[in-house]
Amino acid sequence: MARAHTRRTRKIRKRLAAVTAAASLAAGGLAVAVTEASADPEPPAAAGTAAVPAHAVTGYWQNFDNGATVQTIAEVPEAYDIVAVAFADATGTPGQVDFTLDPALNYTEEDFKADIAAKQESGKSVVISVGGERGTVAVDDAASADAFATSILSLMDEYGFDGVDIDLENGLDSTYMTRALKAIHAGAGDGLVVTMAPQTIDMQSPDNEYFKTALNIKDFLTVVNMQYYNSGSMLGCDGQVYSQGTVDFLTALACIQLENGLDPSQVGLGTPASPQAAGGGYVEPGVVTDALDCLTRGTNCGSFTPETTYPGLRGAMTWSTNWDAGNGNSWSNTVGPHVDNLP
């Protein structure tokens, strides 16, 4: 396990030395300048030790204590295929992020890194999440985009993260976030895991900045796990209004993404793990599995039934593994096996 992690770290360091992501935006998109700094350059290797499965469960791990169960990465159940470490911290430099373990967790960096490596050895992916309710990271010009990309690659090197999760709840600029994510992809290679957790309002139309960002990086985007909570009522793809906390809310809003450019493999359903995990929108795990069945098989639907099925749907996400643990792991014990058995 330790040897595998060391090899992976060396590869990322070589890519950090070999790739300079500070080019300008050309008319057709991001231009990336590549500088060979090695006598024996090699193609970018996979960012992690295992590919994300076709159907996957994502869970956020809290790097803070807010009343949910405090746990280590090692204690996150095996049902989770992607673990998003929440959250990276903004620095004094626009766009730049860093990460520090919360001392209240009594969790050493050595153990944290070893637990990440162990998760990867068991076929899981661990990414660093940026944003959250109080996140203040802004990527809105060329300099901040480059600072964001460089700092994410550095954190991947330092901690062994497989990629990045974008959970910015105060909006984003699609032009410069695209620039940053393309630079990270150039530096990390095709094994990079990129997840996103926009709010429902951010994915109501492909003209929205979050949606545009997802479409701009469609060639390497892993999954968009929209937050189907804390939003009130929203329009579904049929133009009807649906209330959060229902199977129709999950299916009719997912349909917007599925019918406007994202591949089914890039769409997941994000729900709270317990009633305490969100201000509103909690649904029992069985409602999540019904929505998955409706979208992939056309069964267990509510009043809304999609015109087609999407058997390639990626899966589901929850906030958070800590709240799930405090609820007897009810969410992961129910949703995890169901996701594994999707068509």
Rank of each mutant, 00 (worst) to 15 (best):
T9D: 02
R10L: 05
R15P: 00
A21W: 06
A23Y: 02
A23W: 04
S24N: 11
G28A: 14
G29M: 13
V34I: 15
S38D: 15
D40W: 01
G48P: 06
A54Y: 02
H55V: 05
T58P: 01
Y60C: 04
Q62W: 02
F64Y: 07
T69F: 07
V70T: 15
V76H: 00
V76A: 02
E78Y: 08
V83C: 00
V85R: 00
A86F: 04
D89Y: 09
T91V: 09
P94T: 09
V97I: 15
F99W: 00
T100D: 14
D102C: 06
D102L: 10
A104G: 11
Y107T: 12
F112H: 03
D115P: 03
A118Q: 07
K119C: 00
E121M: 07
G123K: 00
V126L: 09
V130S: 09
A138Q: 14
D140N: 15
A143C: 14
A145R: 10
D146I: 14
L155E: 02
G160R: 02
F161I: 12
G163M: 08
D167H: 03
L168Y: 12
N170C: 06
L172F: 10
Y176K: 06
A183F: 03
H185E: 09
A186E: 07
A188L: 04
M196W: 05
M196V: 13
A197E: 04
F211I: 09
K212N: 08
N225R: 06
Y229N: 04
T246A: 04
Q257H: 12
N260Y: 03
L262D: 06
D263N: 03
S265Q: 13
P275F: 08
A277C: 11
A278C: 10
A278F: 13
V283W: 09
V287T: 15
C301L: 14
S303D: 15
P306L: 05
T308D: 10
T309W: 06
G312D: 14
L313N: 12
R314K: 13
V335D: 04
V335N: 05
H338K: 14
V339L: 10
V339W: 08
P343Y: 10
